[in-house]
Amino acid sequence: MSTAVATSTFEDISSLKQRIEELEKKTQNAPDANAISMVVFSGDLDKLLAAFVIATGAAACGMNVSMFFTFWATAGLKKNGPQAKGKTLIEKMFGWMLPGGFHKRKLSQMDMMGMGRLLMNREMAKKRVPTLAELVQIAEDLEVSIDVCEMSMSLMGIKPEELIDYPNLSYCGVARFLEQSSSSNTTLFI
């Protein structure tokens, strides 16, 4: 009788152990509510502003923020200055069409050949809305990580030395983004 009880207790414990192990594995892979990942696709000024306001705001709330820059947004990270050497003609053309510098970013609406942008910049200064350059600096201070799509870089012929100086910047592929987004509770596409 007592051996039967002992065996069943032992079985109970080992099944409990197994369940705990399974739960531990699940929680290890569970998305982190304190992490946010973003796909930044657009190189337009207004959309980059929105992306960096959310990123810096989230970081100020103590969240881990990772931004994945792809396509036109990759060109949006170019700094002002001449093109890098050693580009093909098509790559040079991409460079002319997508000039660097935050002040050259266009609005997605009402840009009006730069008139809208000018008015927007004036209003932002008047109403003390932080500029894109200021927001990127804050993102740097708050350790927001920026991952740049290597495929976009090579497609548009953008060289690493043409991008802004940002300490927490690395080059990667889609797997890195997927790893970041699946381990965070929120993913935005901008």
């Binding site: 306001v53 810096t56 705001g57 709330c61 003390r128 932080p130 708050l142």
Partner: peptide, 11 residues
């Protein structure tokens, strides 16, 4: 200060 600066300063 405008969004997101107030919370950036609090942080």
């Amino acid at each position: 200060l405008k969004c997101p600066m107030p919370i950036v300063q609090l942080n």
